[in-house]
Amino acid sequence: MNDALNDMNAESLKFFGKVNASISHELKNILAIISETAGFLNDLTELAKQGKELKLSLLENCSNSIAEEIQRGFTTIKQMNRFSHSVDVAVMDVDLLDILDLMIGLTGFLSFAGKVRIEDKDQKFETITTCPFLLQNLLYRILCFAYECAGPEGEIRLRLSPEKDKGILLRFINSGQMPVEKFPDEKIKQTADLLGVEFKKNNSFYELNMLIPYTCDKIKDVEKNQ
């Protein structure tokens, strides 16, 4: 268990670094757009000083673009904040939809990310007692796998349903095939094992099902070792 935890800690650090790098890339993109739009406004002002006609629609587009990018920046920073605080407490009660929503947002910064849609988003589920950081790690990896299978134009639908006294069944329905021989890899298997997550067999190459338990004994070990 300790070896597994040490491996997991190293992997967790890598995951934390990877996500932070993708956030910084997103922020750089946002700043680049704001910077170029402000520069473009300067260019237009210079041209106007030289007597060239200044189109008001261009000014409007520029200011709208800056406002939109600032909003995108706020959203990104909020996601970064939520992610950073997920390591504050080792084990806690979490809302699976919340975590999924954050992971969809964070994986969305990756260049190969496709579309993801949570079906019946308004459903209410019991909270699950788990290690939020490890669960994020697991869902992030699975989403990455699903994006690669879906391809740039593909779509992934997520369906959640409660399993009485057991947990929440999460189904990834992919527009692309998910080869069984590639899933789950060792890292996914190890994380899933620590979280008590069980992968359910099904007959479709387009679907991946997992049961996330409401609670599990192994999680208590994680809490003790933190």
Binding site: N29, A32, I33, E36, F40, L47
Partner: peptide, 14 residues
Amino acid sequence: EVKFLQTITERLKL
């Protein structure tokens, strides 16, 4: 990044 591409293209055209 489409918005970046559009804006920088406009600036470079100038």
